[in-house]
């Protein structure tokens, strides 16, 4: 269960149980519940999302952030179409994800024994995403240094960086401590997440990802537009927490 649920349970523990709903075993942490006689509802129980807290990096070191900034600028570059992944704050998004339950693989099955497996059997590394990023970034900088006289990945030219990224994507580069392809697959997926998710998670800054493609964001009622076949709707995107233009300057 995610953190917001946990808050909810703490509220339940505090004894604020609903009408006829009573705790099964209200002794310590009242989690299991018996519900009968009504649909339980109580104010203040919205299972709301966890907003990424602003501030400095919680997980990434400066060197790691530099490496990711550089790689993100190649995965989704800034160009005439608009900002890229770095400008969209994807590094910050990744930092918050890696510092949280996703980084810890807290929902994943992480018991051994550990075997390599077939591609059809999926992820089989014993590393959590946070561990995988840490090890992979180190190994990518080491690989860059070996190949380009001591330079880190972020110090390389764009063409050199692209070559390394392609090598990781294809699995041609041996990163020794980590599986290059597994890392690249995860990194690319997380980049898409950071570029296109709701800005409340720290990426998709100013909704640049949504503006690029014309996605109107966290709207909920498109009934007036269903029959507007073939028409450009030009709906300004909006996030779950609103949109910058709604806030006084």
């Amino acid at each position: 269960m995610s953190a917001p649920n946990f808050n909810r349970r703490e509220m339940l523990t505090a004894g604020v149980l609903v009408g006829s709903a009573a705790a099964l075993d209200a002794t310590d942490r009242a989690q299991a519940r018996s519900i009968s006689g009504d649909v339980p509802w109580q104010e203040g129980q919205a299972n709301k999302p966890d907003i990424a807290k602003p501030g400095t990096y919680l997980f990434l070191t400066a060197a790691e952030a530099a490496c990711l900034d550089a790689a993100l600028s190649r995965l989704i570059p800034k160009d005439e179409l608009g900002p890229g992944a770095k400008e969209a704050g994807v590094t910050f998004f990744l930092d918050r994800q890696l510092a949280g339950p996703y980084g810890e693989a807290s929902h994943w099955y992480m018991q051994g024994p550990w075997k390599k497996g077939e591609p059809t059997q999926g992820y089989q590394s014993r590393m959590t995403p946070a561990e995988l990023y840490r090890a992979a970034i180190k190994a990518i900088d080491a690989h860059s240094g070996d190949k380009y006289s001591g330079k880190t990945f972020s110090q390389l030219t764009a063409a050199q960086q692209d070559e390394i990224l392609k090598g990781l994507e294809k699995g041609d580069i041996d990163l020794k401590t980590v599986d290059a392809k597994s890392f690249f697959t995860m990194f690319l997926q997380n980049t898409m997440e950071g570029f296109f998710s709701d800005p409340l998670y720290g990426g998709n800054r100013d909704m640049v990802g949504w503006k690029l493609i014309g996605f109107p964001g966290a709207r909920y009622d498109y009934r007036p537009y269903v029959k507007k076949h073939g028409q450009k709707l030009a709906l300004e995107p909006v996030g779950i927490t609103g949109r910058p233009a709604w806030k006084p300057a």
């Binding site: 269960m1 919205a46 999302p49 997440e193 296109f196 709701d198 964001g217 966290a218 779950i240």
Partner: peptide, 20 residues
């Protein structure tokens, strides 16, 4: 699993959250 219902767990104010 837990109890969950429309107004508290998938309300229109935050249900449209692809990442989560």
């Amino acid at each position: 699993g837990a109890w969950r219902d429309t107004s508290t767990d998938f309300a229109v104010t935050f249900a449209q959250d692809e990442l989560r």
